[in-house]
Amino acid sequence: MAAAAPTPATAAAPAPRPGLGTNATRTPAMLAPEARPGALAPVRVSDKRIVNGQGDINQLAPFKYPWAWEFFLNANKNHWTPLEISMAQDVHDYHHRLTPAERHVFENVLSYLTTSDILAMRNIGLAVMEKMTAPELQIYQARQVYEEALHTWTYQHCIESLGLDQQEIYNRYRVVPEIHGKIALANRRLERVMRADFDLGDRDKLHEFALSYLFFAAIFEGCWFYNGFSPIFALQRRGLMKGTAEQLQYIMRDEVLHCAFGIRAVRTLIAEEELELDPQAVSLLWQEAEAAEAAYSGYLLREPMLGYSAAQHMGQFRYIANRRARQLGLPEPFPGAENVLPWLDEQANLRKEKNFFETRVTEYQTGGALAWE
């Protein structure tokens, strides 16, 4: 008679797998890293760098740059959209209260800003973020890319709300030499490092990248945007175009974080890579930026507004440029420049909690919860 088939209780145990001894219940996750098929060594904090890091770009922690994560958390507390602020009074102001000179200033500020924010979005998304090798940096910059798109929407919303000719306004950066000059300079300083094959293992290219990022953070965002907003804040101070100015106050909260993050990242990059920036190259950055800003302010304020002129605009540029240089640990490019618009830091801030350019703003709220004084 044939033997009965073994029952589950009496079935013979499977033969031990090679390398597992007699414990057949061990899984690959329980093996030592070197014994796991395709396993990788754990990420060490020391593997992370601003650029040229050896860590896993897909693994957030352990943090090497916790300050970058804090920037991301703070940025998300300032969420808003341009639809939250009424533009009704601005429509009346633009058509019935602004002088022709003031309308000229207002239109050209929006023309410059909307083009600049698209350029900023592309630079962060295609050049800077792509070359960062620590995910906590990339995550904040992903938020920054979104914010630049949001700012572009805000300017477009203002332009559309006022019934302006969008094609004409958007084309000014191409046809007005003084506006085009700033954009062309930015493109020249930022364009090469946008390439995916820009090798940061080459020390000369690494130096070029550091200068480009310095230009973007300290000059493009830290100086030019600040001066870009100030003519509108001058109108707001007189009770004009308050809806647009409030939109720009929200944008200012974003931009000050962009600037502060960029400066911190540049300083860390320089220290990690033991770079020595060429003083002449840095000086040229400031000289070119000042020349472009002077041409722009001369066109923008060819007729001064009440309480605001081209001379004040340039004085403020030089004062803020010195502040940016100090934050970078560099010599002031314009020694002796004075704060010619002492009201501006106060005017530009929401709830008057912090001076944006002297401290890190941490008391953010969501846009719908912000109280206006």
Rank of each mutant, 00 (worst) to 15 (best):
E288R: 13
E290F: 00
Y299N: 02
N227E: 13
I179L: 14
A281K: 15
Y173T: 09
V176K: 14
S230N: 01
A217I: 07
Q280P: 11
E293G: 06
V256A: 13
Y250V: 09
E168K: 14
I232T: 07
A245H: 05
L275N: 04
A281Q: 15
K182T: 03
M252A: 15
E221L: 14
L235R: 00
R189E: 02
E276C: 08
E274A: 10
I270E: 06
Q249D: 04
D278L: 10
D197K: 01
D254G: 08
F229R: 09
Y308V: 01
L200F: 08
Y250T: 00
Y213G: 05
E168V: 02
R192Y: 09
E255C: 12
I251V: 11
M241D: 07
Y250W: 15
I270D: 01
A217N: 04
G243R: 02
F220V: 05
W224D: 07
R267Q: 13
G201T: 11
R237A: 05
L235M: 15
R238K: 13
A292F: 09
E178I: 01
W224K: 10
H180C: 13
R188T: 12
V282W: 14
N187R: 09
W224M: 15
L306V: 14
N227V: 06
G201D: 03
K182R: 15
S212E: 08
D278M: 09
W224Q: 12
A245L: 10
E272R: 02
R253W: 06
D254M: 05
E168A: 10
G163R: 00
A184P: 07
D278N: 09
R264H: 12
E303D: 10
I270V: 15
F198N: 05
Y226D: 07
K242H: 13
A311F: 09
I263S: 04
D199Q: 03
Y226R: 01
L257I: 01
P304E: 07
L235V: 02
A260T: 10
P177F: 07
E274D: 14
Q249V: 04
E303A: 14
Y213W: 13
N187T: 03
A295L: 07
Y213Q: 05
I219T: 00
S283M: 04
P304G: 04
Y308F: 13
R188S: 04
L248W: 08
E290Y: 01
Y213A: 12
Y170L: 11
S297Q: 13
V193K: 01
V266I: 12
A217E: 05
T244Q: 13
K182Q: 10
K182Y: 15
G262M: 12
L300N: 10
F229Q: 01
G181S: 15
I263Q: 12
E255H: 04
R188K: 14
I183V: 12
A291L: 09
L240F: 13
L269G: 08
Y226L: 15
A289K: 11
K205F: 13
I270K: 06
